[in-house]
Amino acid sequence: MRKEFAAKIGQLFESDDKLVFLTGDLGYNALEEIQSKYSDRFINAGVAEQNMVGLASGLAYEGHPSFVYSIAPFAVYRTLEQIRLDVCIHNHAVCIVGNGGGYGYGIMGATHHANEDLACLSPLPNMVCWVPAFSEDVEYCLDQIVTRKGPAYLRLGLGVSYPQPVKIGLINQVIKSTKKPRLTIITQGPVVKNAIKALEGVEDVDLFSMLTLPILDFTPELKNSIESTQNVLVIEEHTERGGLAEHLLMRLTREKLRLNQFEAFNAKGYPSKTYGSQDFHWKESGLDVESIQNYLANN
């Protein structure tokens, strides 16, 4: 998604001369064009992420909405207090951009993974976390972030394109429901592609992709699907605690939707204590195509 991200940032910078971009010394082979074209508003803040978030808050206070870019764990965990205090409680227009959320950095290892980022950020005041699932989502997310003006987190991953044209919104209905669905699957982030693959040839399952945490929208399509199936499977590249499944359970309870069955597939860390690609970690956590297919066969 870095390519789409850089292209959209370029467009936004062209139309708004107040925007500022800060990077924690990262962006090789992606951000060079923005760096050279907007040198006065592109700041390499060095390998100093906490300071970078403080800087962004000061810039935003002075009228410059800012993007803060790093690898997801460095952008989130190192800077959590700065995000909470300097950005969120003042409701400043600062967007934390975490590249490679979840297991996105694969074999780079645990230092470079972020599977608790949404649990850390989504409870913070005024914060909206954006988790594009497809490359096409990135543009929509950035438009929303700039329009909404408050604190935001954009979790970028390795994107794929939409398998078919769909209406892009806060909840993407990726595959249309059949008349009598038996299961509603709700995913977040690029792991959706495993659900799409697992659902090839399956005609009685609805699939949705949730773009934000907290859940900003609960569309009639999603509500109708759950009312009809009373059977929900969440697939998320995030720990069980504080992610989509927990947010969703609270929402379903408030909406008074009855469920017969609720299951969640989450990131499970490093169960075999070995490391590999994103696909490898998906398989280890049971987020892979086969695990989803097995669930479909038995439920």
Binding site: V20, I43, Q50, N51, M52, V53, G54, L55, A56, S57, G58, L59, A60, Y61, E62, G63, H64, E81, Q82, L85, D86
Partner: peptide, 13 residues
Amino acid sequence: GHGFPIASGMAKA
């Protein structure tokens, strides 16, 4: 440790 980075951002702005 928060004020100095914020002030630096304001000065940069």
